[in-house]
């Protein structure tokens, strides 16, 4: 069964004037179809304003559809009775690491979700330890989050979601405010959770490099899903990606240009090693 299934999902934001009359409608999501199977690592790519964060908020039931349907773990997000159950099965990590950490001690912050769910005290401690270990932050459990680096804070935030034991975790541009090291750290942790714990991961990003290891990629532009497929397939459509204002990684671009100039290499080169291999053989 699909853990997340969106059918013709539409979301409209209303712009209002001072009297509250509707001045204009902005369509943030335009008939989006999306399917995620349990255990998959899915990426959603898009530049600013493509609607990808709006989609993330829908999956967490922070927004509800204007039209169309969205089912998360078999529950309709439009029904407000499902709100808490949906947020338990689909946890969300946000962009700004500082603005999503609630407590002044790491372990207390990770315990916040389970506390809200009414988990008994002993089990909260077990979950906190388990989830902090799974992101490699257990040794900082008694620290203040203010003293951690951006990447570490973001890992704490991921642990905070893991402690709720969701079926699926949505990372909404988790690396946008981090330095390159922090970005690698967070993406690595996301892949580890997917591989070792079988967690379904939905990574929302505008960095194409981060999409490389995923099972399936959706590209969004102006509220629509404009491309979808496996990373290799997506990366081979360089000109199409450029038309949707995506920054194609340099290696892929280089391979693409080499191919255009007549070199016999396959489409969709993702990493530097791959290109070196191909060039040696060719």
């Amino acid at each position: 069964m699909n853990i997340i299934e969106a059918k013709q999902l539409v979301h409209e934001f209303f712009r209002r004037d001072e009297e509250g009359n509707i001045e204009g409608i902005q369509v943030a999501l335009n008939k989006v179809d999306l399917k995620v199977e349990a255990g998959q690592f899915i990426s959603i790519l898009g530049h600013n304003g493509s609607g990808k964060s709006t989609l993330a908020k829908h999956i967490n039931a922070l927004l509800t559809p204007s039209d169309g349907t969205l089912y998360v773990d078999g529950k309709d997000t439009a029904d407000s009775n499902n709100e808490l159950a949906i947020r338990q099965s689909a946890g969300m990590v946000f962009q700004n690491p500082d603005n999503q950490i609630i407590a002044s001690i790491v372990e207390e912050d990770v315990g916040f979700g389970p506390e809200n769910m009414g988990v008994p005290t002993d089990e909260i401690w077990e979950r906190v330890e388990r989830s902090l270990k799974s992101v490699g932050m257990w040794k900082y459990h008694a620290h203040s989050p203010n003293k951690l680096s951006g990447g570490q804070k973001q890992r704490v935030a991921i642990a905070g979601v893991m402690a709720m034991e969701p079926k699926c975790i949505i990372l909404d541009e988790p690396t946008a405010m981090l330095d390159p090291d922090g970005r690698k750290e967070v993406i690595k942790v996301a892949h580890e959770l997917n591989r070792k714990k079988g967690m379904t991961v939905i990574l929302i990003t505008h960095y194409m490099e981060e999409v490389v290891g995923s099972d399936y990629v959706y590209v969004m532009d102006k509220g629509k899903v404009v491309m979808e497929g496996e990373p290799r397939d997506i990366f081979s459509r360089v000109d199409e990606l450029k038309s949707h204002r995506m920054d194609v990684p340099q290696i892929t671009l280089l391979a693409h240009e080499l191919k255009k100039s007549g070199l016999d290499i396959p489409d969709g080169i993702l990493t530097r090693e791959e290109l070196i291999n191909v060039l040696n053989l060719g």
Binding site: L62, R87, G91, F94, I102, E115, G160, M164
Partner: peptide
């Protein structure tokens, strides 16, 4: 928003770590 996403719904039914 982050608190809501982590199931915060007031003090009712909350346990303590």
């Amino acid at each position: 928003l982050a608190m809501e996403a982590r199931c915060y719904h007031g003090g009712e039914g909350r346990t303590k770590m």
